[in-house]
Design a protein around this nucleic acid. Sequence first.
DNA 1: CGTGGGTTTGACTATACTCAACTACGGTGG
DNA 2: CCACCGTAGTTGAGTATAGTCAAACCCACG
Lengths: 216, 216
Amino acid sequence: MTGDGAILDRLHHWRVTTPKGRMIYDEGETPSGFYRVETGCVRLQVLREDGRRQILVFCLPGDVFGVELDTLRPMAAEAAARSELTRYPMAAIRNAGMEPGGVAGLIGAASSMVSALSTRLKGLAHASAEDRLMWFLDWLARRQNADRLGGLVHAPMSRRDVADFLGMAPETLSRTYASLERSRGILVIDAQTVQLRPSLSSLKSGLALEVGAGPK
Amino acid sequence: MTGDGAILDRLHHWRVTTPKGRMIYDEGETPSGFYRVETGCVRLQVLREDGRRQILVFCLPGDVFGVELDTLRPMAAEAAARSELTRYPMAAIRNAGMEPGGVAGLIGAASSMVSALSTRLKGLAHASAEDRLMWFLDWLARRQNADRLGGLVHAPMSRRDVADFLGMAPETLSRTYASLERSRGILVIDAQTVQLRPSLSSLKSGLALEVGAGPK
DNA sequence: CGTGGGTTTGACTATACTCAACTACGGTGG
DNA sequence: CCACCGTAGTTGAGTATAGTCAAACCCACG
């Protein structure tokens, strides 16, 4: 999902800024452009028939989303926090094809979305609430180079968003944070911030092992 | 995920046949080609750390899979039944870019995989076992034009596969079939075959409504 | 200073998982 | 041709995890 800088710079593009909560495009629309996140956080989501929301992917700075051709938007995009984006008109794709490397770059962007969704599905299905949350925190920590920040991780999105991302009720998420605090020594600073173990590396390997051991 | 016939025919390609259970490529490999299903069924899956398997997508005749560039294989591909495939070397993608329409076709293939995965995540998370199974049967019925066959649906894959696809234990799947038989009048012929309600259209609208009503 | 969304806590419940035993089928070899 | 084995699927009993409903809380915002 992370963008290929080289090709994108040569395409026609411009900056947009969206406040928290603004919809960027809706599920089912005809795509007219794609985006790159510069600052903030965007959530890609679908609305379930029972009215609940499932967040499929969080896009952080550097991520490219919305590269879709010959399909209606399979999911909606909304700003999960105040964000700055770069917008590229979809027509740019057709021109990009003519340049050497252009195809690779854009198919690459589309493929890495596939990759992100696969990882997602892997983490979501058949895993305990605790495992899912650990997995999310680990993902966030890597993206923010939390090692350098002494293991301090700040989530740019609300807890409700995280709950909808992990496919659990907000109440469960809350309880799970509390449980992690006890069982793993993770410190919850506030609703959006946690302090991971002193050495994140121990968390990483710890994660792989513990998850490997499975529930109970 | 369904392929764009026009462009594919002009690419270099050949036929392969795989027996049931054969691995086509593995998670983490470097992609060297992509495929189109002609007959049979292919499952795209990941192996979870606890040893369990999560099937992300079933590919049926007409579906294109494995269009991935600049990423390692995010999921493995295995034949869920004896299948015939057409294989295209990945190098074909770079050449295709030069042709008008080539880019669009291939990004299209990648996008529709995104689309498929989105639908998947939507159906998987936060839904009762019964809803998930209904959703699966509905998907299968559409793909097979079950209306014309009097609502007879045959699953080309094993029940274990279906369970891993829907993210539930095989025992639960079995019980859920039994429960559908009672509550929805669906007739289970054998482990791989079901007879849907006389008029499938009633099933379709029924599905939307009942799922909309939600659990309890 | 009041209002309201987001978050937390508590009590109860239900859904689906686990373990375990049993059955049915298909292939294999004697 | 029949006995055997192994895989796939079913059924049963008990349990645990996460969902629901309800209420209190707290902070940001107007």
